[in-house]
Amino acid sequence: MSMPAETSAPEFLSETKDGVLRLTLNRPESLNALTGTMLRGLADAVTKAGRDASVRAIALAGAGRAFCAGADLGDVKMRMADGSFEHGAELRKAFNPLILSIRRIEKPVVCAVQGTAAGAGASLALACDLKVCAEDAKFLNAFAKVGLVPDSGMTWLLPRALGLSLALEHAWLSKPITAQQALSSGLVNRVVPAAELEGSVGELLGRLFAVPPLSLALTKRALNRSLEAASLEDQLEYEAQLQQFLGRTKDHAEGMAAFLEKRPAKFTGE
């Protein structure tokens, strides 16, 4: 079988290996600007990974020198000219399902950010569970510069991560956030030299794999839910429901036994 011509290289790469679904934005010549094909393909891949027992975690990355420059403005401009582009419809159809799929999948999603993460690209990074940055990473929120509001979940996630004042300053004034600032304000988890980015993600995934999968899954769900919980009472009740379920699992029994016997636990995901 002949390889497709170079010009038709896939816009994102998808590979499952050793329990990790690796999704790589693959338009380095355009700083991985997001197209409809990429967004829908990524959302689909994430959703399917949720049902695929061979996938235990997702690693998201961008090929080349930038993580992602956001929406493909060339594509937007062209489609606005021929009248086939509507901002609201585009978000509902392509961007929002991807953001929701990442927040909803009950498996860890770790992203590696180098260079620029701008606009919806920053939103995409922000939507991931854990973020590892190269020292040159930079989050840019340039929506206001073109007369728009931050989208793809940015207005939901950013104030929760940064607090309202810093979020507003970042969004209003399009003030970039450097990797170090992102680290000190709790926006990302780690900053490493660019050469160590992949290794750092791998190390993080290895540590996640040592945790019982149901704990990972339900902890993510419970923390997600806490952002919208009506009250402490409501969330306490939710914790009780999950704990009642987890308390009957084999992995809980194994974890307790291993702790008491002072040996490493062997979890099976049951």
């Binding site: 769900r221 429901q241 009642q244």
Partner: peptide, 10 residues
């Protein structure tokens, strides 16, 4: 409304 894992118990 409860967690899926808690539905039948509830």
């Amino acid at each position: 409304v409860v967690a899926p894992e808690a539905l039948l118990d509830e």
